[in-house]
Write a protein that binds this DNA or RNA. Structure first.
Length: 706
DNA sequence: AGCCCTCGAGCTCG
DNA sequence: CTCGAGGGCT
């Protein structure tokens, strides 16, 4: 954060300037908030500015403006909720959309666990409530904290609000000393209708659907308001526990009910995918009569010891899945098709629609995926059976995938207007006129203009300043766009010369709407703060195709410094030789990624642009991340022979969970070889290299209790 | 060939 | 946040 003068030390002129600036910024933020534009200010930042404004007004009451932000009503809340780090992450679920997806789910689990087709394997099936998830932490039977899901790792503390919900007991008896109950906060249909009637009578805004009403009600800063809202809660899971609730999912949910929580009356234990699907259909027929919104059915492996063995993928458990109901559909007219150009030059078609309500939300734009989708062809370019080309003026069906992203699903050909024409996907970039080429096997057509293309240049700059890249405070997507239009910046290096070029004449900035002398100066400071940057962030910020956050981390770790990476890429430009082999040998980097990095740096214009940038930066060396403290953390492990207690996939996942790296072949880098019966050449090689060899039992003993 | 992940791009909400 | 496409690994 930029250091600011204490209000007491401001001159009257400075105070007047800053108040004017704050009034502009806060008014703009309020406008954004209400017109649903992408907000530039976080809640926290908004609060900070508002407090700053009040502090200055307190010191200089005479300077208080007629349009003072402190007098605005309905502005953002005074304080935000505190953050809560979940002891056990709140993950999301994978999705199934068809009966076959459900059978695949069962098959995957059987395969992972090494179970046969007929082995007993039971699942729970229950409705998926459409609300928002909440984690309730009880210590010695008393509710001490309620937290929203947030991003899964960190949520918001809404304890005071949760306590106003009738279904959430403040005190429970007979529970483990630590118990985190997880479930869904929702609003019943009847309560939702009543609330909206009350809201409109008091001229307050009505809610579009029960889900939004529940979310809005729970996130009230004033718990008294939450209390007046009829929220309910279903418990269906748990986080941290001092002792197990049961050895089965169904048993644990029953235990939660015993403790006084509401649980779904429709939870059923099923012995096969057929039973699960039957229960899904059963729930679907009751859906309209339940009195609350549900959006599918959740299946979970019932045996908790199996859940434990199955574990997690990066963001979802292997042992549960959500079987979604078909999305709501709506028909509307396709007004036009626009083409947007992304940072890698990808041309993506966007449908501009007659506004239509889908699932309680008005949709006027929707993605059309790509060229083939519009033409009615599949990804290999073959005409889709019954496929139809989509034309401007057509009546199209839209839905919101995952209840979020609007998509065009279908066309009503019987409603096609006379004289309509097949949509011609552009062969040149609509922004710069360069050729737009589609590579063999690629679904997207790309503008070949590279740095020449203004659209690509702007998108690249937006990426450059984005959260995971340079993340410069006060320089968001909108400012970048503005600066580009004004010709102040054309490439990343220009950001770092802004002060030199305009610092003496900040008045120029000051004349622009929303900008004052102060904000210009703080922007310069914020830019200066980022002149030191970790190597991984720097690589990511370059926006090289196929190189995102994860790949940037790998490259940073492997090469350590920017000059080392740069030199190596130039040495590998012919895609052969030791430098190339070394690059491709990085775990997680294949020929496509490698080619992309090498090609980018081999281009004179790109390299020159990057070199101009690095001249202003101090790129920090990459250091290896902290490894865990398990006995195998940071070790490279190889499994060979037959494993009898678990499948290969399970053994690998477990080792990785403990921080080990699992490799397929023995080399000098291998630390441990786990050899089952029938181990052959790998065991011999490991013995030659003097590598520690364990049998399966010894391995399990080593990692036991971890 | 299958699995799992990352990348890139889309849109709306509070 | 969500999805589809595509890359990498086994």
């Amino acid at each position: 954060m930029v250091p600011q003068k204490d209000p007491d030390n401001l001159t009257e002129d400075e105070a007047r300037d800053e108040l004017a600036h704050l009034a502009g910024v806060l008014a703009a933020a309020n406008r954004d908030y209400h017109t649903l534009d992408a907000p530039e200010l976080t809640d926290a930042e908004y609060d900070r500015l508002k407090r700053r404004n009040s502090a200055i007004e307190a010191r200089f009451p005479a300077l208080k403006r007629s349009d003072s932000p402190s007098d605005q009503i309905g502005a953002a809340p005074a304080e935000a909720f505190s953050k809560v780090t979940h002891a056990v992450a709140m993950l999301s679920l994978g999705n199934a959309f068809s009966d076959d997806d459900v059978r695949d789910f069962d098959q995957r689990i059987r395969k992972y666990l090494g179970l046969g087709e007929t082995a007993d394997l039971r699942y729970t099936a229950e409705p998926k409530i459409d609300g928002l998830s909440l984690s309730l932490r009880y210590e010695d039977g008393r509710l001490v904290q309620a937290a929203t899901r947030g991003d899964g790792a960190v949520g918001e503390n809404v304890t005071a609000n949760a306590l106003t919900i009738d279904d959430i007991p403040e005190v429970i008896s007979g529970a483990p000393s630590v118990l985190e109950v997880r479930g869904e906060v929702y609003m019943a249909h009847a309560d939702f209708e009543d609330l909206n009637v009350r809201q409109s009578k008091s001229d307050a805004k009505t809610f579009a659907n029960p889900r939004n009403a529940a979310a809005g009600s729970l996130r009230q800063l004033d718990a008294a308001i939450t209390r007046s809202r009829p929220l309910r809660f279903f418990a269906y899971a748990w986080g941290a526990l001092s002792e197990p609730l049961s050895d089965r999912q169904s048993g644990a949910v029953a235990r939660l009910a015993d403790l006084g929580f509401s649980t779904s009356p429709l939870l059923k234990t099923c012995a096969s995918p057929d039973e699960m699907i039957a229960h899904y259909q059963n729930i679907e027929t009751q859906r309209a009569d339940l009195g609350y919104d549900i959006d599918g059915v959740v299946y979970k492996v019932d045996d908790l010891s199996l859940q434990d063995r199955l574990g997690f993928r990066s963001t979802t458990p292997r042992w549960a899945i959500a079987h979604k109901f078909p999305a709501e559909l709506a028909w509307t007219r396709l007004r036009s098709i626009d083409i947007q150009v992304g940072r890698t030059g990808a041309l993506s078609p966007v449908a501009r629609l007659e506004p239509v309500t889908v699932g309680g939300v008005v949709v006027s734009n929707a993605t059309l995926h790509n060229e083939d989708y519009i033409a009615g062809r599949d990804s290999r370019g073959r005409q889709i059976r019954g496929g139809k080309d989509i034309r401007v003026g057509d009546l199209v069906q839209v839905y919101r995938a995952g209840d979020v992203i609007p998509k065009v699903a279908d066309v009503d050909l019987s409603q096609r207007q006379e004289g309509s024409e097949r949509y011609e996907f552009p062969r040149t970039c609509p922004e710069c006129g360069s050729a737009a080429i589609r590579e063999e096997g690629d679904a997207v057509r790309r503008c070949m203009g590279g740095l020449i293309c203004p659209a690509q240049a702007v998108e690249k700059l937006k990426h450059f300043v984005s959260r995971a890249a340079f993340d410069i405070e006060g320089l968001g997507a909108r400012q970048v766009e503005q600066f580009c239009t004004d010709g102040w910046i054309a490439e990343p290096a220009d950001i770092f010369t802004l002060r030199d070029r305009y610092g003496s004449g900040v008045k120029q900035l000051k004349n622009r709407e929303g900008w004052g002398e102060k904000s210009a100066l703080s922007l310069f400071d914020a830019i200066d703060e980022k002149r030191q940057i970790p190597l991984a962030r720097f690589i990511f910020s370059l926006g090289i195709r196929h190189v995102g956050e994860a790949a940037s981390g790998l490259l940073a770790l492997h090469y350590g410094t920017w000059p080392a990476l740069r030199d190596a890429m130039l040495a590998a430009r012919d895609k052969e030789g030791p430098a190339w082999d070394d690059l491709v040998s990085v775990d997680g980097v294949g020929t496509v990624m490698a080619g992309s990095v090498v090609d980018t740096l081999a281009q004179d214009a790109e390299r020159a642009s990057i070199d101009r940038l690095t001249a202003h930066l101090e790129i920090q060396k990459a250091t290896a991340p902290q490894t865990g403290n398990s006995p195998v953390a940071g070790k490279t492990v190889v499994f060979t022979g037959t494993l009898e207690k678990m499948t290969r996939a399970e053994a690998k996942a477990r080792a990785e969970r403990l921080g080990a790296r699992v490799s397929g072949s023995v080399s000098s880098k291998t630390d441990i070889l786990v050899a089952g019966p029938g181990a052959g050449s790998k065991a011999a090689k490991a013995a030659d290299l003097g590598i520690e060899i364990l049998d399966e039992d010894a391995w399990l003993a080593l990692i036991e209790g971890q």
